[in-house]
Write a protein that binds this DNA or RNA. Sequence first.
RNA 1: GCGCAAUUAGCUCAGCGGUAGAGCACUAUGUUGACAUCGUAGGGGUCACAGGUUCAAUCCCUGUAUUGCGCACCA
Length: 885
Amino acid sequence: MLDKTFDHSIIEKHHYQKWEDSGLFAAHPKSDAKGYCIMMPPPNVTGTLHMGHAFTMTLQDVLIRYHRMRQQDALWMPGTDHAGIATQMVVERQLAADGNNMTRRDMGREAFLEKVWQWKEYSGGTITSQLRRLGTTPDWERERFTMDEGLSNAVRKVFIDLYKEGLIYKDKRLVNWDPKLQTAVSDLEVEHREIKGKMYTVRYPLEDGSGSISIATTRPETILADGAIAVHPDDERYTDLVGKFAVVPVCNRIIPIVADEYVKSDFGSGAVKITAAHDFNDFEVYKRHKDKGIPLINLMTADGHMNENCPKDYQGLDRFDARKKIIGDLEELEYLEKVVDHVHQVPYGDRSGVPIEPYLTDQWYCNASVLAKPALEAVRSGKTEFVPKNWENTFFDWLENIQPWCISRQLWWGHQIPAWYDEDGTVYVADNEAEAQAQAGAGVKLKRDEDVLDTWFSSALWPFSTLGWPNKTPELDKYYPGDVLVTGFDIIFFWVARMMMMGIHFMGEVPFKKVYIHALVRDAKGQKMSKSKGNVIDPLEIIEKYGADALRFCMTAMAAQGRDVKLSEERIEGYRNFATKLWNATRYCEMNGCNPNFDFTPDQATETVNKWIIGELLNTKKGIEQHLEDFRFNDAANTIYQFVWGTFCDWYLEFTKPLLGEGNTNDALKQETRDTIGWVLDQILVLLNPFMPFITEELYESIAVRPKDALLMGQKWPDYAPELYQASSADEINWLIRTVTEIRSVRSDMNVPAAAKVRMLVKDASEVTVARLKTYDEILRRMARLESVTISNDVPKGSIQTVVDEATLVLPIAEIIDLDKERERLNKEIGKLAANIEKIDQKLADEKFVANAPAEIIAEQKSRRAENEAMMTKFSTALKQLSAA
RNA sequence: GCGCAAUUAGCUCAGCGGUAGAGCACUAUGUUGACAUCGUAGGGGUCACAGGUUCAAUCCCUGUAUUGCGCACCA
């Protein structure tokens, strides 16, 4: 027998161990079953589980468990990502905190990497063990890490192949440079922050002494690297100046004045300084005016200090100090004309939090625009489909305007670029040093490129590198392309788009057929969870407190398409209560001997309530299937919730109480009812299992003796014969529900004490109703707290009356009735009905409506009018009788 | 500036061309051994605003407002 209350903490670990030991997580590439594959977005190997993970992993696990139960050969491919910058930063911080003030450069590459590997070994299992707490069932045996040997081989091969195809190349261009981390970062890793800064207007004297030209800038320190001044070609104010030269204040360099359409005449002075090595737009101007002799001057070191290209007294200054200094100098030299407050966007590194510097460096690039074309085409043609569809626009916009992808990073943690240089700087791209040496020729001294690849470069290969590529494997055959990728919208660019590009290029086929994009998890107020805000809800604490099932179910129920998940603890508590409800219902079933009977099949049910609940279960199962098919997780969750609580517990178990009681001497019926209850309960556990795996597994084990080692998670998703649903049963039971609800409602309205048992007379009952009243006599008496149910057209004095369908229900309660109150209630009912009728009459009187509306709508209005009319008559009669009393 | 989404009950959100829904919260109440982590009943909405299409609009279209999120930015 089950304990009186459900304690999730007792059951969770125990079941997970059993599941994992059972081998049921494993995919079987050689089996004949149809494959179903989800590639888990690999979390940061040294990370810990946060709500975003819990959310996405829950949805994936629901899908995987569901498809596994449907007898598909499910592969949920798990793994972790080395997360280059993030992980390296953590270890560097640890070094700094050690007290020795060591930096990675002090340590040297090899020793540092050893440290990172140690850290990976130490904390690498954290997140995967936390995923186990959540109850997820990926094929752990296949777990991969982006820096595994196999995956690293794939990375090198892709690099080499793309290099040979000319799609990877080295180039000197401006990159987003993070002076703190001292690496290039992707423009996706740059966040623009609105900053209240200043705009400085600076006067540049003309070289010929004939006057001056003024420009505006927010970054006066870059004046030292100015290479030109640009004006709009049509700007008449400056026509005469184009072709002349100006003198850069402070450093006195002579620079040309050029005309370029990029300049907006109506902004500032209409003249702009061109600092080609420190601004993306300026760099473009520079390229268009190469013939004008514009110098390309880099004035900063990699860590954001002023370098040897600056005047002596600037060299070595931090970039922000240099700004202060130059403002002073300009003022002193009387070049500074104006300073105004100016709000503008400044790029910040999203990891380092410092302003990003456009910086001129040599980097490796991938020609993304070539790779993007087939990826775009694949989505346009529907080979890959986004759900919800509107994300396709985001995908298109980005890929259509894609820039060369800078794939090199000045980090140590990651895949080192497989390129070697000889002393002349000639590059040899090869799988290993020996091959590079062979290319270069014996005896040539080679040095390997020190940089590593962008983490997303290896993640882009994830859908096939994890399946054994470049080897031809049965896994690749069977599971590529994957069925669905489940991920958040925030990494459509970072990851989804790149997997599409690489997957199509190297596999000749899209990496997944569908991309389900979910929203972000926020706190109850809708704010993004972040450590600095302190509003982080830790999934593990929630699991401790409410159970993994409650968290999972909450996540699923909140996963409506296109909306963020605002997570509140109350909501989770609500679903914990749902688990308790199921627990107690099961306990009740056990107490009444309603355990699954394996000889019972639902077609054996004869009693209407039993046939009804079976039919309702059919609809529920169909609903869940449809909703999961459509990735409408919230609807799927609500469908089963509603069935379990609102249908099974609230009504069916109550309906069957009389049948199980001593009053029922029909043993066959009693047994059928027990069997039906046991069967439906068993089915509930199966249908609910993908959502709430722990409690359902526990109950499944508890309610029946099963074949040895039969785990619920390994059971087959049911198939029901459609004829098990019978509309006639539904009609009858819906009448019963209506009747019980109506009596309860009127009792409550009239303050009839809950404990009071009252008689009920039924007036104007049809034959069908008479029969039903007889059939459900006991249920009615029990559920509506009635002493007796009698067919009678008498209305005793002091009765309250109400109407269900054609019949009038009369409750003679002279001793407790409040006549005024009852009069008020009846008048209210009549008023409502009259209003309905009036509305319908208006419609029916509208010629256009009658002429244009479909016949069934008109018929519906007419029959609704008749119903309302009939009810109004009955209530009016009741009112008259009350007044006469 | 461009784009996307949202605006429905006190809160969080579903929904839908033909009688407005859920959970939580709230109010009242507590009857039978599954369940007070519960039962029963109830109150509560001009479906942001303005136009349009339609016999009919909360739903479709257009515009406005507000909010959120992307993308791009003028030095």
